[in-house]
Amino acid sequence: MSFSDAIIPVLVFGIFTYALFKKVNVFDSFVKGAKENIKVAFDLLPTLVLLMLAIGMLKASGALDGFTRLISPVMEAIGFPAECVPLAILKPVSGSGALTVLEEIFKDNTPDSFAGKVASVMAGSTETTFYTLAVYFAATKVKNTRYALVSALLGDLTAIILSCIAVRMIL
């Protein structure tokens, strides 16, 4: 049994045990949370249809493969899977877009390939930066966000580069 296989069972065990100890109505809580997230998933659908349309067309036209081929000599030289570049570009802008690209990478390369693993780590360790900044600052009167975007993008860039290194070193 590996450490990563144990994380989820341990977390689930811990949460249920703690809830029992605190006399929480496990059944009602679970149903409430599940219901809420099912709604979220369905709310995601219209955006996902649009992004699937745009990315599906880009792929069918050959433009996406053309782009990947174009950059792959450079990417290969630095040891970064070229298939993951569209994901790195899209993730800060659109979560649904990133999800769609991730699905395409898994379809073309399988999740256990090098590109599939790097894409998984990248998708799991970055956020939709532009969207998040827009939502957070829109709630205030702030017009000048100063170095917020630079600092956030520095983090994203770190995550993109590190996901490749981490997969090589840890997995």
Partner: peptide
Amino acid sequence: WGGILQIAKDS
């Protein structure tokens, strides 16, 4: 996960 995490929240 929505269900499991709701339990974590409520507890």
